[in-house]
Design a protein around this nucleic acid. Sequence first.
DNA 1: CTGGGTCCCT
DNA 2: AGGGACC
Length: 630
Amino acid sequence: MDNIGEDSEDDDSEWIDICSPAAVTASGKVHRNKQRWKTFVSMFLIHSLKFITTPSSRVILHFDLDCFYAQVEMIKNPALRELPLGIQQKYILVTCNYVARERGVTKLMSVTDAKEKCPELVLVKGEDLTHYREMSYKVTELLMSFCPLVERLGFDENFMDVTEMVERKLADTPKSDSVSFKGHVYNNITPDTKTPDNLRLAVGSHIAAELREEMYTRLGLTGCAGIATNKLLAKLVSGTFKPNQQTVLLPESVSDIMGCLGGLRRVPGVGHQTAKRLQALGLVGVLDLQMCPISDLVTEFGLPTAQRLKNLSLGLDNSPVTSSGAPQSLSDEDSFRKMSLTQEVLDKIRELLSSLVKRMQKDGRQPHTFRLTIRRHSATNKWFSRESRQCPIPNHIGKKITSGFSDEAVSQLVSLAMKLFDKMVDSSAAFHITLINVCFCNLQSRSTGMGGKGSISSFFARSTSSPRKTPKISTQNQVMSSHIDLEMKSIKINHQLEEIQRKMETKSSVIHQLRPNVDPEVFKLLPEDIQKELLSPAYVESVSDGLSKSPRPPPFPQSSDCEIPGNVDPTVFSELPLDVQRELMSEWKQHKPVLKSPSFRKSGRTTTDKDRKPAAKNSQTNLLKFFKPN
DNA sequence: CTGGGTCCCT
DNA sequence: AGGGACC
């Protein structure tokens, strides 16, 4: 056999050649390439069939713990359960339990106001995040034990892609025609005709209920869940009924939930700045954004952001759930009214660093970059805006952190930090800073070999306080099915192949989805570690996702700005339901720019490797090279 | 005067 | 490398 797994460094041009039938026939190594080519074609066609025969939309869960910090404190001290409890950071009530809320206390209220509203309010300091962090990772870990595709959002929220699990349950119980919904259904929709999509969401709601129950029995935590077809909608719907309840959003209610949102700021992904810029365009409500000509948005934000914002307003969100794994950085900070003495700065930095080094030590990885951040006092109440300087951490210092020479490490880091501080602040003049942050990033596992205990195993399982390192795996699987459906209709095999090739360049999903259908011959040729990777639970049946094939009413005003995707038969395209057209368009536009630069072959590494950030994005390119003919 | 994180752009 | 935006 020719060595599919070898020679990672050969040229892209060969790959390009092989992908063009004309070039293949012109090539010198016609025969071998032809075989390879046929293998590819059959793999993809087989795989394409799967799209036609399997449902395609995702089932996404969003979990949101109730007043998280307060819950943790009430677990530590059950006596607090019956009392109005507020968690205090500095002068602010960062959250409070529901007893306190009944008495008019709210989140982010100043301590003074809260005490005024509720004099009996019990305050607990919440500046030390250690316990919250630990509990937070226990939650993520628990969810991950059911399905590895869990993405953290802050300390108290998790997204989960349970499409696979739903599919499996559905397959296991073929005659589960009468699955009911667990928890609430948004808008109290009547059990309605069980479209395939709704059935799958119903299964999702049972999974959500089960997981919430697990969270309560195993960790003592209550929370809300939202069940929907994408992250945006799952997050939006999860807070519908508050505390300790869950809600499903059916596709038919998408326009309702978006419309009810009111202010644009309420759309996840639209922050303060973006909301202000939108307002400057005269857009204040979600409906304004839905109807705004895309061109106006493009001038203000550029195409990618414009498209993303418009999609969000329509309830569209194709972003994959990306498993979070171990943190990318560890930091510690403190804020204060005023600091203007170098000595104070030095002391504070030392204090922050000694705590950070301890955390770093438990983590087990070695930081290779150090960053110091400050916030200057500004008369114009420009409180935000931080400045930072960073530098490499010399290896001899980094080693001291991981190997337990904390004190030495700290003092050397302190002097490193002070140099950075001098780069930002002229200590000979008067200064006034209100915050200091120290941060370790560029974290690398020490073990070089994959089998070594360090790289894969250390995050969650270590001591209770340090989460395990987990490869970051993303399932990116939207668009595909609908595109392929379209192309099947338009018969043109060339189109199909070209399209599939583009998907390979831009979508990790192709590789993932392809795996269950990988040609056994090809599979055998893969290096052992890649085989293992493909078989690992994380990769097991990534299923396509995206558009439902069941017709849906067009819920939104049609955006009229669309051209037609170049790779799609215009006649076929025009016959599709409007909302399907719209979703195809947005997908197409979003990925169009990327298509230009294939940028294959990064260096050869695999997703199971340590740092997961690159792993997520490179997974397809890294795996791809093993399919690349030579 | 929140304390973390993450990702993206330049 | 540094800042911005977001949760």
